[in-house]
């Protein structure tokens, strides 16, 4: 049956081509894959492995294999759980407020006014500020003896806001919000500019008040950007380090001991690399889950323009 043979030959040829295409594809992603393997997967594997050891007080000395029990004991320890709780609090303090403020500033700067460019520059200026600089600025502002903010807040004298267990985390959060506001502002400004003016004109004619226009038109259309800011924000809050290192070093009384700082202290102050590895792996897992959940569930409720 010549027909069938022909088809088979063709089929074989097609499958060979598909194979070749697949091979080319894999070849093209290989550099990225190799980079990930070397800098992400391998270190991750090592960290998981390291978490099975009780490391010595000094890194030149032998470690003891303790097995998965170290994971159990670290994860159930009050220090770890406390730091996780502080991290969640930190995210709750910084993210909604930061995003709301970013949107508010972007709305303000979106007006067509003379000299609005100056405000845009001012609002986005914190992007050019490093965490260290922002932290040092606020450290000075919050100083109980010479700080302007302390003076205005009526907290002059005493040990200061940053040494006050009640206010330390909120204070660090404010610094983080301030530092990130430029980025959020730019993000939201770009998103606002992408919303066609005619939509808002249409809504005005349709009788919507300015709040109604914002809520029913602007905000839904900003939602992809807001979603992006939330993902970046959550990951960012889980990795906030510089401001805490400079402002409070995890204190007072561990009130700013977020997970990443706990890991840092365990590893580089207490030389407890095994414990730090466990906490890092858990942090990784948490962020992975958070990101997956966000993409799985939140994304569905987000409008993406076509």
């Amino acid at each position: 049956m010549p027909d069938r043979r022909r088809r088979t030959v063709l089929g074989r040829r097609a499958s060979r081509r598909a194979l070749r295409e697949a091979a080319t594809g894999y070849l093209l992603v290989l550099p990225a894959l190799a980079t990930f393997a070397v800098f992400v997967f391998y270190p991750l594997g090592r960290a998981i492995w390291l978490g099975l050891y009780r490391t010595s007080v000094s890194p030149n000395l032998p470690s003891t294999y303790v097995g998965p029990s170290q994971y159990a004991s670290v994860v159930s320890s009050s220090a770890f759980l406390g730091s996780l709780w502080r991290t969640i609090l930190f995210a709750v303090f910084t993210m909604p407020a930061g995003i709301a403020l970013g949107i508010a500033l972007a709305m303000l700067a979106h007006q067509r006014l003379r000299g609005i460019q100056v405000f845009r520059t001012v609002f986005s200026s914190t992007v050019a500020t490093s965490t260290a600089v922002a932290s040092v600025i606020f450290f000075t502002l919050l100083d109980p003896q010479i700080g302007l903010l302390s003076y205005w807040l009526g907290k002059k004298g005493g040990a200061g806001i940053l040494s006050d267990p009640t206010f330390a985390l909120p204070a660090v959060s404010v610094v983080s919000i301030w530092q990130n506001i430029g980025f959020t502002f730019i993000l939201m400004s770009a998103a606002l500019q992408a919303i066609p003016d005619t939509l808002l004109d249409a809504a005005r004619l349709d009788g919507a008040s300015s709040w109604h226009r914002f809520r029913s038109v602007t905000l839904p259309l900003l939602s992809p950007t807001v979603f992006f800011a939330i993902v970046v924000g959550i990951i960012g809050s889980f990795q906030a380090f510089g401001q805490i290192d400079i402002l409070t070093q995890g204190g007072p009384n561990n009130h700013t001991m977020v997970l990443i700082y706990y890991i840092y202290q365990s590893a580089f102050v207490n030389n407890d690399y095994g414990l730090a590895a466990v906490a890092s792996v858990v942090l990784f897992a948490i962020l992975l889950v958070v990101t997956l959940v966000q993409f799985r569930f939140v994304e569905r409720r987000v409008f993406y323009a076509t």
Binding site: L44, R46, I48, L50, I263, A267, A277, S280
Partner: peptide, 30 residues
């Protein structure tokens, strides 16, 4: 090989976006 604080920070910042602070430890720790 433990990390010194400076390379930890650099590494943590780089990998921050991937949420892989853990790997920094391992990269230099084991």
């Amino acid at each position: 090989k433990p990390l010194d604080r400076r390379s930890f920070l650099a590494g943590a910042t780089t990998l921050a976006s991937a949420g892989l602070a853990s790997s920094v430890l391992a990269a230099c720790g084991a």
